[in-house]
Amino acid sequence: MTMAEHPAPGGFRYIGTKRRTKEDPRFVAGRGRYAADIALPGMKHVALVASPYPSARIVSIRAEAAFALPGVRYVLTVIWYALCGLIGWKLG
């Protein structure tokens, strides 16, 4: 099908005409750029840890074992965020 086969009923240039989508070619070629496709220098990855208990009180969060893993740069907890907020420190 071509655009010529679909003349616009109202004589419009775009409205009512069969048109191709501008971004489709890169998606069908595997060149879309989704968030997971982006790799920046020094980029780090996040692993979220949810509570294993459906209903419980957080008494403490011990991060020693996580820190001991190779490649772990930060273990962020709500306490950590609160401290960063107080002193205005940003992740580097």
């Binding site: 099908m1 191709r20 989508t21 971004e23 489709d24 070619p25 998606f27 069908v28 070629a29 879309g32 989704y34």
Partner: peptide
């Protein structure tokens, strides 16, 4: 684009493109 890839563009066979 291959004929198949071009046909996907022609019939609007994608929106977000993730499954494409």
């Amino acid at each position: 684009l291959s004929v198949l890839q071009d046909s996907f563009c022609q019939t609007h066979a994608l929106q977000c493109g993730y499954c494409t």
